[in-house]
Amino acid sequence: MGKLAFMSESSVSKSVPERRKLSAGPLSTGDKWFFRTTSIAANFAFVLVAFILVFLFIQALPALTSQGLPFVYGTEWNNQKDPIVMQIGPMIWGSLLIGAIGVIFATPLAVSLAYLIVFMLPSRLAKVATTLVDLLAALPSVIIGLWGLFVFSPVAAEWATILNKYLGWIPIFQVKSADNGFGGSPFIAGWIVAIMIVPIITSITREVFSQLDRDLINGALALGGSKFSTFRRVIFPTSAGAVVGGILLGLGRALGETVAIYYVLQITFNINWAQILEPNGGAVASMILSKFGEATQDEVSGLIAAGLVLFILTLGINFIASIIVNRAQPWRKN
């Protein structure tokens, strides 16, 4: 009996062994300081974003309470009325429309460019091309805006005239009157934005392409794939999630773009749903820029509220981007 009792006791103590305390924390004083500085930096970024949000919210509150929900969907801005009317529906829609046009123009360009750089150019030329594209990203947007106004707009207006003439039967290429000219349209602003986001999408796509397992590409070619079928069936599907992430990052920049759009776009408070050649458009950031100089006290609050809306919109898009990127590559989890 005594022996049995002893055995059962020992087996109990064996089944629940005492756990030792494990520490994955800093190992040395140097480690501790490294940990502290990095966590301060990380928290600083977070605190900064929170402060900006709080600032925007406090400053925007008077306008938001006086305007109510129509602030985001209404189509009138009048500082002569009493009480003042401030509604930014056309600006929000305009930002999204221009962003979408920009992405539609920029994506094929950027993906082709990335393919060219990674798979076709000899390495020295590829480096030159990469530098050139990255330089495009370094151009200040005011320069692009001025170039857009004086050089690009007249050219793009020609393209728009041709589009309207031959494809005018498609609703998005219709205009109320060709006499208004084809300048100042979301089409032109979309092109300007496209030029500005091509570098971001190219650089992300280039990175993904160059990290692709060469064995996958060789596997496809060894099965009798052509360069194009290999791109379509293997390279692109395998990279698509990350490319979409790059596109949405580009869209984030497009939505925030201010000066360049300000120069080339005819901003009005009439909502332009999709007639992209009409000299009538909107963009939240550019509208803020155009009004800020002469804004009354009440208007300033309205403009800051517009900024808050833009901020939330961009956050939302980045959030959706991260979901799409994760969902688009279920196989990555393995």
Binding site: D213, D215, L216, N218, G219, A220, L223, G224, G225, S226, S229, T230, R233, V234, P237, T238, W331
Partner: peptide, 20 residues
């Protein structure tokens, strides 16, 4: 080096598709 975006069946048929 199976194609990671494809199912088992699509991997088998991938050569036929790739070569058109």
């Amino acid at each position: 080096n199976p194609f990671p975006t494809m199912t088992i069946r699509d991997n088998i048929l991938s050569g036929l598709r790739l070569s058109g």
